[in-house]
Design a protein around this nucleic acid. Sequence first.
DNA 1: TTGATTGTTGGTAAATGGGCCAATAGGTCA
DNA 2: TGACCTATTGGCCCATTTACCAACAATCAA
Lengths: 106, 106
Amino acid sequence: MITFEEAVIRSNIIKAMAHPVRLLIIEYLKEGPQAFSEIFGLFDLDKSTVSKHLHVLKETGIVTSRKSGADMVYTLEVPCVTDFFGCVTAVIENNVRRQQVCLCKR
Amino acid sequence: MITFEEAVIRSNIIKAMAHPVRLLIIEYLKEGPQAFSEIFGLFDLDKSTVSKHLHVLKETGIVTSRKSGADMVYTLEVPCVTDFFGCVTAVIENNVRRQQVCLCKR
DNA sequence: TTGATTGTTGGTAAATGGGCCAATAGGTCA
DNA sequence: TGACCTATTGGCCCATTTACCAACAATCAA
């Protein structure tokens, strides 16, 4: 078993991924580093909102940023986070399977 | 890229894991199904609080529950969620590495 | 320097999350 | 049946999150 303190640290990192906008940003950065303006263009949100989401990802060490000319470029630092989504997909598939069983029984 | 709707579904599952108590419950259930009273005993929390955390895990399909005599027994349905923590650890190690660099520069 | 463009920060309101207590539901067992 | 035990649900309060707008900082061009 892990300690409670360790669980707090882990949950903070997981929390950073626990938002649809931040998930999409991570997915997008899998393709390579991207400028803020490109990331911003993915969403129908205020600039400041997207900036704050990126700040959360930076704080937890999932992405980093650097200036490049006029742009701010964001880079995914931990590519393995995407492996994890395979597990999330497994959860979803498991749910679908169980729902089908429910439907059959009715 | 995934759709926004898909990202919402995924983030709901990730959210279910984004709490230290729920992480510890998942860790505990890796060892096998456990009665509510055993899970409850891990924490210094109200019964109702632990019950609500388990409810969140049930809703997302991460655990299931069944009655066994007087007890309610919880089972981890998606063992792969634990693989994912390897990635979280990678994020943590990456953070430590970068912090050390910072310390060296100062 | 001035003006335009780009991204961050501060403030605030609404929504969500997490804790406890009290009440309830659903079993078990004498 | 009635008393008891176990887990869940409802209600409430406080803290956090997330969105927008507005103001600010920082950079590039003229």
